[in-house]
Write a protein that binds this DNA or RNA. Structure first.
Lengths: 199, 199
DNA sequence: GTTGTAGATTAACAGTGTTAACCATGGCCT
DNA sequence: AGGCCATGGTTAACACTGTTAATCTACAAC
């Protein structure tokens, strides 16, 4: 097995059971019994090694989304299912989620665009569900991709607030999730009786 | 001026113009011409120093929210204004925002509860706006605090997705923000014609 | 005048990412 | 066969990091 994949495997393993903060080049090297500098023959630096881990993580996340997006049900219901499973993914595998979304990628912009196609796949899936809903006149926003990103951002917010332990102890976690998902799905729906009618 | 506040000032200053990643005890010490270990006489460790910076940041954020929450207008409009100014705060001062929300506080739970009262203040403000809206039968959720946290989480998601450069280049930033805010405010509104009527 | 203590220091430890210089192995070309 | 050179690895070293232990200094209290 090539050293490159050994490094990635060790990195992923250590990420899983030690967390992102204590992920170090030297530890990875020790784990697979190789000198630390050898890693630099396969990855430009630590950041680029992490980017590869991010790609892996996004792949897994997308797979778990796809399983639901392929389901046969109404768009709104589908979105709710996707929302719940997205949050569940984050809570189930906090370290993996952290590496995907909580690492600030300062130099990512100059990354080969092709690498992001895989990343975008998730948004495209969500966008196509929304497009489907739009055709049936369910939803608010004419631009599905924008809408998809907005939903995604909100889901990320919900997930990361919990992971970052920023949730008030007075607010039960499950109530919070349920309510947030309701709010999100409610948010994209066309509201026939506009708020103006209250005035 | 006490060394403690000197440390905090230097820390805040360096955070602002060098970013969180390159914030180091030794650099702070050098900046104020003192030995690195002196910091440990005033802060248990780096984490606790950061916590103090977080508190400061939350204070500022809350002040900028309060200015709007005290405005005299309809609840829904007020929430929209709060939402926009929250996002604006994050985009204007990314480093400050980062330290507030993107640092995972592993041992925060065992923090003196009193310290969080200030932090919670923002949620309480939002909750009271929601409560006001509930009385007028505008909103969806019976539990204002839960709703407040859900909104907050969604705002954080929107903000951090932009800060983390995770937004698709095809989606214009301002469209994204506008749409996300619409989605959020739409989400909390009572929808008189339920989705069921479409079936 | 001694004692104690608060606030600072220096030296050191164990760890980090990363670079430079070096070395071995094996394939290719003349 | 002998020389060449790229590939993939090594060790040593640099410049950092957070943190602790031991020490020193100055000042207040009894």
């Amino acid at each position: 097995m090539s050293l490159r994949v050994q490094i990635l495997e060790a990195g992923r393993r250590m990420l899983l059971d030690e967390g992102f903060d204590s992920l170090s080049m030297r530890k990875i090297a020790r784990e697979i019994d190789v000198s630390a500098t050898s890693i630099y023959l396969h990855f430009k630096n630590k950041d680029h090694l992490i980017y590869s881990l991010i790609e892996e993580g996004i792949g897994e996340l997308n797979r778990s989304i796809r399983r639901i997006a392929d389901l046969d049900c109404e768009p709104l219901q589908k979105i709710e299912k996707i929302a719940r499973s997205y949050i569940a993914f984050g809570l189930d595998r906090p370290q993996e989620y952290e590496v995907i979304f909580m690492v600030r990628p300062e130099e990512m912009p100059r990354y080969p665009k092709e690498k992001f196609r895989k990343a975008r796949l998730g948004y495209e899936m969500l966008a196509s569900v929304i497009r489907e809903g739009n055709e049936k006149d369910y939803f608010l926003e004419p631009e599905p991709l924008t809408s998809a990103y907005a939903i995604w951002a909100q889901l990320h917010g919900v997930t990361s607030v919990i992971l970052n332990k920023r949730l008030d102890t007075r607010v039960p976690k499950n109530d919070f999730i349920t309510h947030a998902v309701n709010q999100i799905t409610n948010g994209i729906q066309l509201n026939r009786s506009s708020a103006a009618s209250y005035e």
